[in-house]
Amino acid sequence: MRVSKAGLLVVAAIVIPIVVEFRTALSWFGIELSVLEGVALAVTIVLAIVVWAVWPSDGNGNAETEPTDPE
């Protein structure tokens, strides 16, 4: 894990306002995402972050990096 479980939860929560506002912002440029597309975008981003978080940071399968350590 590259971040703690709690850290991951917090990041996932923060993605939500970003996607919600991003969808509104995009519409000013004529790009209208439907609700479903918005949800899909959020899920994709959160999944990407989860994958990043659990991916071993140095190619070594069981690298356990403590959240407080530098990358």
Partner: peptide, 24 residues
Amino acid sequence: GGEGYLGWLRALPWRDPVFTGMAL
């Protein structure tokens, strides 16, 4: 022990509801 321009954010006690609630 946090380091980096933004990397220090990861060293904050996000597990603590008191901290996380106030920060959010």
